[in-house]
C-alpha cells in the first residue's frame, strides 16, 4: 500500500508521491496525456480572475488530480493586518475547488497597501513569531482549513534574530496547529548563502509536522569572492538537493513532494522526469512515517 501523509484535522490525504506545479503552457499536454501524479499544485493568485480559460482548465484538472493551492501573496509575516480582499478571494477559490492541500510562506510581501510580489524575509524574534501565528490563525479560521507554511530561501540574515529558523517553523506549527511544508531547495540555498549546515537544519524539524516537501532548481551568481545562490526555480533539482531529499525521507518517511519550476518553464515531459526521480526515491524510503504513527 502506498503511504499517505500523516492525518491531521483539515488536511486531506494525498499520496506521499510526486506532484508538479502546472503552468498555462502545460494545460493541453497534461489533460491530453493525464500522466500519473499524486497531485497538481497551482498558485491561487493566478486564478483570481472572474472567469475565462484559467478556470475552465482548472475545473478539469481538479476533476482529474488532487489539487494543492500554494499561495505566494498572503504576507503572513507582514507587520500590517492581512488583506481582507485577498482572504476573501482565497476563500471563494477554496469553496469552488476544494483543494486537498493549502499552503503559504513564512514571508512578507505586503506593506502600506502595496503588494511587493516577492517572498521577503523577517528577523526570527518572539515578536515576529507571535505575529506570524496570529496571521496563520486568521488564515486558517477564514478558510476553515488547516494550512501548511513553507520555509523561505533568503539572501540576508538579521542581527536581531533570536530563534533559529527550524525552531521558528516548528514553534509556529505547534502554536497555531498548522503543518509544515519543507522546501529542501530553500534550505540548501539559504545554507549556502549564510554558511550553515542544511543537514542539521533538516534534522531539527520534527518529521510529524511535515506534510509536504518542495524540490526546485536554483542558480549561482559568482562575482569575485562573492558567491550567492538564487532561488529562481528555473532549472532541474541540483544533485545536493536530491541527496538532502533522500536523507530526509529516509528519516521521516515519504511525503507528497512537489517539483516546482517557475521561470524558463520546460515542457511537461521534463517535469515528469523530475517527478519520476522523486517517486523512485520515495519508494526506496518507504513508509517510515506510517510505522512511526
Amino acid at each position: 500500500m502506498r503511504s499517505r501523509s500523516p492525518s491531521c484535522d483539515g488536511i486531506a490525504p494525498v499520496p506521499a508521491r510526486a506532484g508538479i506545479g502546472v503552468k498555462p503552457a502545460h494545460y493541453r499536454d497534461l489533460l491530453r496525456t493525464k500522466p500519473a501524479l499524486a497531485f497538481v499544485e497551482v498558485h491561487p493568485e493566478n486564478y483570481m480572475g472572474a472567469g475565462g480559460p484559467p478556470h475552465a482548465y482548472l475545473e478539469v484538472i481538479a476533476g482529474t488530480y488532487p489539487l494543492s493551492f500554494h499561495g505566494v501573496g498572503m504576507s503572513l509575516a507582514g507587520a500590517e493586518p492581512l488583506d481582507r480582499g485577498h482572504l476573501s478571494r482565497w476563500r471563494s477559490l477554496i469553496e469552488r475547488y476544494e483543494p486537498a492541500l493549502v499552503s503559504e510562506h513564512i514571508a512578507w510581501s505586503r506593506f502600506d497597501g502595496i503588494s511587493l510580489h516577492d517572498l521577503l524575509p523577517i528577523p526570527y524574534t518572539n515578536e515576529s513569531l507571535k505575529l506570524v501565528c496570529e496571521h496563520i490563525d486568521e488564515m486558517q479560521n477564514t478558510l476553515g482549513r488547516t494550512i501548511l507554511v513553507e520555509n523561505p530561501s533568503t539572501y540576508i540574515s538579521f542581527r536581531q534574530s533570536e530563534i533559529p529558523e527550524p525552531e521558528f517553523m516548528a514553534q509556529a506549527a505547534h502554536r497555531s496547529g498548522c503543518g509544515l511544508l519543507i522546501d529542501i531547495n530553500n534550505v540548501y540555498v539559504s545554507a549556502c548563502n549564510h554558511g550553515f549546515d542544511p543537514c542539521i537544519w533538516l534534522t531539527r524539524i520534527p518529521g510529524n509536522l511535515v506534510h509536504e516537501i518542495h524540490l526546485a532548481g536554483h542558480s549561482v551568481i559568482k562575482e569575485d569572492e562573492f558567491e550567492v545562490r538564487i532561488d529562481d526555480h528555473g532549472s532541474r533539482v541540483s544533485p545536493d538537493v536530491w541527496n538532502l531529499y533522500q536523507e530526509t525521507i529516509a528519516r521521516i518517511g515519504a511525503r507528497p513532494t512537489l517539483i516546482e519550476w517557475d521561470t524558463d518553464v520546460p515542457e511537461l515531459a521534463v517535469l515528469l522526469e523530475e517527478a519520476n526521480r522523486a517517486n523512485e526515491l520515495a519508494t526506496q524510503a518507504g513508509d517510515a512515517y506510517v510505522d512511526v504513527a
Binding site: F111, L120, I122, F158, S161
Partner: peptide, 30 residues
C-alpha cells in the same frame, strides 16, 4: 523592530532601481 525593518525595506524596494541601500537596512544585517 519588524515594522521598522519592513518600512525601510518596502521604501527601498519601491524606489526607482539604484545601487543605494539605506543605512537603516544595512545595519540590520548580521
Amino acid at each position: 523592530t519588524l515594522r521598522e525593518f519592513q518600512t525601510a525595506m518596502a521604501g527601498y524596494l519601491t524606489a526607482t532601481p539604484g545601487p543605494n541601500v539605506p543605512e537603516a537596512l544595512r545595519k540590520l544585517l548580521l
